[in-house]
């Protein structure tokens, strides 16, 4: 009896969840653009920092995907002996840059930092990241409403995420 009794709500819940997901994805396509704009320009993008993978984080932050560009110059070491401190800098010749984001694809949460660049500030940023293991460092430059990226693999000999 209990199985039948429990079965119904469970099924119902599953269906509801499924419907919710469908509804969210449906809405997502139209509403992401604006939400992302706000996230990249005004307030701390909580959701983007919670995403596991790089692609999800980029989507959560900007609602779009980036195209690789040779105008984005990513400067990172080939080999980082200590993953706890990996110096990474980016510069670009692109104009109208509004934000720059740093990601490490294999970190527990891929997104490391987002920098908001108001007019008058140069699109060059240097910082130091933690990297859990050898992986791609991805830099996203938002310029003129479009996304450009550069990627470089950094080999990490000692991880910086609590090994």
């Amino acid at each position: 009896m209990t199985t039948i009794h429990n079965g119904f709500p469970a099924t119902r819940r599953l269906i509801m969840q499924g419907a919710g997901v469908v509804a969210l994805t449906g809405l997502g396509i139209t509403s992401f653009g604006q939400a992302a704009f706000a996230a990249a320009n005004d307030k701390y993008p909580d959701d983007a920092f919670k995403q596991k993978g790089a692609a999800d984080a980029i989507k959560s932050l900007y609602g779009r995907t980036a195209e690789p560009s040779d105008k984005v110059k990513l400067d990172a070491p080939e080999i980082a002996e200590n993953g706890a401190v990996v110096p990474i800098s980016v510069s670009t010749t692109l104009t109208e840059v509004t934000s720059i984001a740093f990601l490490a694809s294999e970190n527990p949460n891929a997104l490391a930092a987002v920098y908001r660049i108001p007019p008058g500030t140069l699109p060059n940023v240097a910082n130091r990241l933690k990297m859990a293991k050898t992986c791609d460092v991805i830099v996203i430059v938002e310029a003129g409403g479009k996304l450009y990226s550069a990627t470089k693999e950094v080999k990490v000999t000692v991880g910086g995420c609590g090994g």
Binding site: Y44, P45, F49, A84, V85, V86, S89, A104, N107, P108, N109, L111, A112, A113, V114, Y115, R116, I117, P118, G120, T121, L122, N124, V125, A126, N127, R128, L129, K130, M131, G160
Partner: peptide, 25 residues
């Protein structure tokens, strides 16, 4: 009176963080 640079950081920024940027004006 206005922000020239804003950083949103997650947990993957190294201990004792360092950052460098430039602005005009």
């Amino acid at each position: 009176g206005k922000n020239v640079f804003v950083a949103d950081w997650g947990t993957a920024i190294a201990k004792d963080p360092y950052v460098k940027f430039s602005f005009k004006g």
